Amino acid sequence: MTDTAHLLSQHSFVELNARQRAKSLLDAGTYRELLDPFDRVMSPWLAKQGVVPQADDGLVIAKGTIGGLPVVIAAIEGAFQGGSMGEVSGAKMAGALELAAEDNRNGIPTAAILLLETGGVRLQEANLGLAAIADIHAAIVDLRHYQPVIGVVAGSVGCFGGMSIAAGLCSYLLVTQEARLGLNGPQVIEQEAGIQEYDSRNRPFIWSLTGGEQRFATGLVDGFAIDDAAAIRQQVDVWLKQGLPAQERSGQYELFLERLAKLDTTTQIDPQTVRDLYQGEQP
């Protein structure tokens, strides 16, 4: 296949909404949505603050199979409130993960796929959102004892705040060129440290530090895929069949702390310094 033909055969994953992304990963005919928009389970807090709520609270929960293996998918809709997590959406994700863990304890092997397109906690729901994200973290740690929890960060909304911790707890994490991943978003860093330290409008600079390619090069994620639904599905399928990793990334904290201790914070950091820092001494 020529390069042109290959490009024409690609189907963008980034351009899909949350529901379409979930369907694109699952085997044909196996998609079954739980608490869909017709159930009208939505945030009771947004309308009180003048924000129009969404019938699924910006989170799609779907069950089905990938390569014949049973999975549950939690897909965040980045177009609704920046993919932020509130009381309802957080409870939906945490509940889905908890039920998957219970399935495993009952002899039904169920893995989880988290499609993360989120700025973190929903500010309008503050502590309720934080509590829900904490439940998500606990549920991921529980489920990953049995089956892989696979995170995918694909679009430019990225994955930030408490949900970036959820990403770090995943058994495997996949990103694209368009993705971003970080604990604090660019605007928050600029607000706290100043524009001289971090210019949130400098997109090349932002992506050079927190973009998908950089995060893969520094070993903070496990896979890097082109923006193609088939390519992303293929990598997810490989990890599902591979099973649990030999060691969770969150269990390697001593290694990462050792490398971070070598960082010189007196000068402006640059992408190559980040790579050298995280890659460590090469054999």
Rank of each mutant, 00 (worst) to 15 (best):
P204D: 13
A91T: 14
T65I: 03
G82C: 09
K63C: 11
F38V: 03
E190F: 04
V153N: 04
K48R: 14
R215Y: 05
L174K: 06
E117M: 10
V153M: 11
L128S: 15
R233Q: 07
V60Y: 01
E125M: 12
Q268H: 09
G182L: 04
G223V: 03
G107E: 05
L277Y: 02
A134I: 08
G161R: 08
L34F: 07
I108S: 07
T30M: 04
P37V: 10
D276S: 12
G194E: 12
G162D: 09
A246Y: 03
V121F: 06
P271M: 08
Q191V: 00
E192P: 00
K48L: 06
M93I: 05
D27I: 04
S9C: 06
A229F: 06
A75E: 01
A18E: 13
T30H: 10
L7D: 11
R19S: 14
V52G: 00
V221P: 00
Y278P: 01
G64A: 06
L128P: 04
C159V: 10
W207Q: 15
R203H: 11
K23S: 05
Q81R: 15
V14H: 07
E281Q: 10
Q147G: 04
S200M: 10
L257C: 07
F160H: 09
G212A: 12
P37C: 12
G67K: 14
Q177F: 11
G158L: 08
E178P: 04
Y198T: 13
L115E: 06
V51I: 15
L181E: 00
P186Q: 11
V141E: 09
I206W: 00
M85S: 01
A131E: 04
K63H: 13
Q214L: 12
Q81K: 14
M85W: 00
D228W: 01
L34K: 04
G243E: 03
Q247T: 14
G78C: 08
R275K: 15
V14L: 04
V157Q: 13
L209D: 02
G280S: 07
L114E: 12
P37S: 02
A225H: 02
Y146E: 09
Q20C: 02
A132S: 15
A131L: 08
G120F: 09
D237V: 00
G151T: 05
I140L: 06
P37T: 11
V188Q: 09
I108D: 03
Q252M: 15
E33L: 04
L115W: 07
R40G: 01
G68A: 09
N184K: 14
D3V: 10
S164M: 10
C159S: 08
Y253E: 06
